[in-house]
Structure formats: C-alpha cells, structure tokens
Write a protein that binds this DNA or RNA. Sequence first.
DNA 1: CTGTTAGCGCATTCAT
DNA 2: ATGAATGCGCTAACAG
Lengths: 339, 339
Amino acid sequence: MKKKTTGHITIKDVAEFAGVSKSTVSRYINGKIDAISPEKVKNIKKAIAELNYRPSKMAQGLKIKKSKLIGFVVADITNPFSVAAFRGVEEVCDQYGYSIMVCNTDNSPEKEREMLLKLEAHSVEGLILNATGENKDILYSFAEQQVPTVLIDRKLPDLKLDTVTTDNRRITEEILQQIYSKGYTDVALFTEPIASISPRAERAAVYQEIAAVRNVNGLRRMYEIDVKDKEQLEKALRSFMNEMPEQKKAILALNGLIMLKIISCMEEIGLRIPEDTGIAGFDDTEWYKLIGPGITTIAQPSHDMGKTAMERVLKRIEGDEGAPQTIELEAKVIMRKSL
Amino acid sequence: MKKKTTGHITIKDVAEFAGVSKSTVSRYINGKIDAISPEKVKNIKKAIAELNYRPSKMAQGLKIKKSKLIGFVVADITNPFSVAAFRGVEEVCDQYGYSIMVCNTDNSPEKEREMLLKLEAHSVEGLILNATGENKDILYSFAEQQVPTVLIDRKLPDLKLDTVTTDNRRITEEILQQIYSKGYTDVALFTEPIASISPRAERAAVYQEIAAVRNVNGLRRMYEIDVKDKEQLEKALRSFMNEMPEQKKAILALNGLIMLKIISCMEEIGLRIPEDTGIAGFDDTEWYKLIGPGITTIAQPSHDMGKTAMERVLKRIEGDEGAPQTIELEAKVIMRKSL
DNA sequence: CTGTTAGCGCATTCAT
DNA sequence: ATGAATGCGCTAACAG
C-alpha cells in the first residue's frame, strides 16, 4: 500500500498501481468498461479505491472543454426569491452533475460585471442571470462563445435570450381587481426604484392603467422609495394617508422588501391593518400569515422558475438551437385578512 | 481585425495578434510588466482588448494548482443563517478573487458526501462547512490534500478543524435568565431532533441544567419535534399547555424553523402570546418584530461567522500551520414583548 | 483489448 | 527582454 502521502493522486498513479496505462484508466473512468478486460477492470477499481482517486475536473475540463460549472447570478441573495430559485437550479444541476457558482450583485452593474467576467474565466457552461440591465457586452461575449444564458425574473428587452419570468401583468391585474372589489377607492403603489427592471415596470404599468379608471378622480399614487431611506418612506406613507383621508385606502407593495419596510413603518406610526389601510404585495413568505391579521400576498413560483431556467440551459448545452423563448410561469394570490 | 468568430480566444491568439510569444503574453497577464519592453506591453494590451481575451482559470489552475474556488456547503440554504453567512464568505472572496461553489445538503449525509466529492474533484482551495456530522473520511482526504476546511456553526468533536461558532452556552444561559426573571415557572424547550448537531446539543444541555433548578419541581420539559410533522408539534404544544396549567409558561425555541412552526401552531389553536405562554428563540429575522407583540429572539452574528470562517480559510491557504482554533462569536438577545 | 502519442491553455524554466 | 520547450492531468485518436 504505497499510498503517496502527499500531493494529489493522478491518473498516472492509478495506472501504475493497477499496472495498466493511463488510457485504460481513462477508459474506465469514462464508463467504457466493456472495452476493458474484466481483470484489469478489477485492478483499476481496486487502485482507485485504494488510492482514493478523484479525477480532476480541471484537467478533464481543459481537455474536453466542459467545466461542469453553472453560473448563478442574482441581484440579492438575501431575497427569498433568489434562494428558492437557487434550489430549483440546484435540483436539476445535481441530477446532471453540474456544480453552481453563486454570485451576488447587490443590484450593482459594476459588481455584476466583475462576476460575469469571473464566471467567463472559469468557463462556466451556462449562466442563469437575474440581471441589472447593464453589461450587455459581456452577455454578447457569452453568446459568441456559445455559453447559454437564461434570464430569470428580469427581462432584457434588446437581448434575444431565453427568459423565465412570471405573468406579472396578469397577476397584478388580478390583485388589483381583488383590492378594488373590496371597496377600496384610493390605492397606492409603493415600490423600490423601477429603473429598467422589467417586473417592476410591468407591474407599475398595470397599476397605472387600472388606477386611472378605478381610483377616485383617476389618481395614480405611485411612490418610488429607496428602502434604505426610512424617512423617505415614512414621509410617503404619511402623505398618502393624509391626502383624502375620507377615502378607503389600500397599498400595493411591489416586492417583499418594500413590504417589510412599509409594515414596519406602519407599526411605528400606529397605522392599523386593515382598519387604517389595506395592504397586499408581492413575494409570499411563510411569515406573512403571522403578521397582523395575515397579509395578502402574491406567491411566485420561484422554485419552478429556477428549475425551468436550468432546464433551458441544459437544453441549450445539449444543442438546442431554437429561437429564444420567454417562459411565463404563473403566480397566484394568497388571500389573507389584510384587505 | 481578424477576430476569430468562434471558439475561445487563447493566449496563443493574443500572442499572434500582438506579434510576441506566448511567454511574453503570460508575463503580461501575471503582472511582470516591467520585464517587457514598453512597446510590446502596448501591443499586448491592445490585443487583449481587441480580442476580448480572458485567461482560462482552468488552464491556469491546472498549471499552478490553484483553482480560485471555495466550497461553501450548508445544511439548508433556506435558513437565513446560511444566506447571511454566505454574504460574509462572499465579502472576503470577492476581495481576493475567489469564487464560491455553493452546495446544499438538506441535512442529508449522503447528499453532503456527494457534494464534498464534487468539490474535491473541482479542486476547491478551501472549504467552509456546515456539517451533518458524517463523512469524516472525506474531510480527512481534504486535510491530506492540504485543502483547509473550516467548520461553521456546527462543531465536529473528533476532528481537529478550525471552527467558528456562537457562544451557545453563554447565550442560552442569558436568555433563560431573562425568562425566569420574568416570573415564568414552567419553561419548555422545543427543538428539532438534536442528533449530534453541536449547537442544538449545547443549548439543550444548558437548558437541562437550568431548568432542573428553576422549573417547578425541577421538571425538564424538552420536546424534540420533526418540523414536517404538524400533528406531533400540536400534540406536544397541547400537552405542554395542559399539564400544570396553573404555572406561568414559556417556550424556548431552539432555532428559527421550529419557532416559525410553533407560532403558526399557536395561532391555529388559539394560544396568545404572551398571555397564554411566553416565547423566545434563536435566529432573529426582521419579521419577528412584526409578529404578535414582537418576538424576543437571539441574533447570531451570521454574517461575521461567514466572514471569519473565510478569513481563516485564507490564512490557511497562505500557509498558516498553527493549531486549529475554534472561534466563538457573540450572539445577543433582542428583547421584545413576547416574554 | 491496450498502449503510445499528442495536445487542451497556460506558467515557467532555460537559453539566448 | 524574450522565445522555445516542458509539463500540469486528462482524453482521444491511432496503432497494434
């Protein structure tokens, strides 16, 4: 048992130990077992077990040009959406032997750029991207090198890329119908800055359309808030509540983060749900049923989105050359008592 | 501008484009700029920009035996702790040019084993592990190959590895003091199965010690619950509430998941906080202040733990051969109104 | 069935 | 200051 006590075990060590050539070991590794004499198979198996040999993905990758790496780039890993999506991606990656490099951009295009470059350098075979909206050049570069990219949640209009999102327009319409059907006459939209983030833009657009006909006087009450600026939020909230106080008010929170901040703020300034104002919003978590009277939310198929995205990547890797598709998965409203 | 329209750009392409040898380009890449004539530097720089060249980490890695990859293995990425820790790890990784391969074990030793093997195959330079407690053999194998492993949150007693955890004993003592000081006379512990998960064991041990002297009749009321089994939880909860109903009762939830399930269950069976029973538990999230009267929790330095762990990995990579240290970071109690 | 050879993209002697 | 040659660990012809 002359195990090398240091350094990494290579195919060469195994070959020597088993008394065969590297090629034969390589064949064994790659499952061409019935092209090897049974006895050598046995020896090789033994050598591998004995030496604890693990083929280097780096060396394999360099040779066959497959890294077995997938890049998963999210704007904010802290967002439950990202985690759920990750699990979906992971589910199919595990099945096919891929590993995932996770990157977080904090919604910063610069950080995104760095991450993308790093992933490219690592030769990822596929990319799942929750994009900031910049860095198209790198995305082109990925395309040129035939590494499939699929966008998740956020569309990039002028890039012909596979995309998996939610039916934002439909679900926003649905939740607004629900709200107005409860007799609310003044519903406001609270959101983080829309910038060019497609789900935000789509949701906001639908709100604008519907509010224009359903709100008193057709008033559109949209508040774009920097969630880090607590004062700004409080000011917006007070302003919304104080104008036309006789109207029945409700708030639509455009994502989970702003929802959290709004509810916190309401608590602090003593606004009751739903007596003072109804509220509903995107991004369901298990906590919402425990807060106040239970918060009505929109649950997105985050896990499925991740899974679907990765399945798309896989298809591309396997050679699918079809036109980019954008897949819209269905969100659903979870009615609780906050309306 | 004879850009290759397909395939990957290699150092060879750059060399040809710039009219120099591969060696020189390599020197350029590795920052040995002042060993190259200024003119060639200029040409190389231009070639790289023009061709959009990105050195292959796989090839570099194969050569210099550095993958620039770190493995981050968590039991449950869904747990906010994991995400916070990830961000800590990421913070220092970004700084030093490392990328992170994230793996999720779902607390399954088998899955952990697969992940560990995969990471080894990918030649990670370091490993941060929230361990299930099995797979010591692979951990030894990592050690043999000099890839530093640091344990996070969960200790592995018979492995001499760097570990970063929380001061579980101290903080458990503190929260229990707080509870008893409010006049509770019957406090129960609810936890997921302890198995050999060190933080759970430590917290439970302290509870046992203290409950033995502080609870009425020295009763230790420990409930190990499978969070997937809702009935079991409800039964435990009812049993706890119905025995000695005259006592002032409180619950200590040993982690965030069980806390969530307990509160949900309480809500369903109509138990009020803190009138019917007080409650407090581990793993703070921003939601807790919004639930019921606000839930008293223990905030752990998850982000710092990740950061510290990665710093330790880095030290090891840089050659630190000191004895394994176990670093205990400080958690703190966030008092709200649930007690 | 099996070994020999070449080369993936790069860093690094060693000459020059 | 720079190029040629070598090899990292592996796979894939190509012979035999």
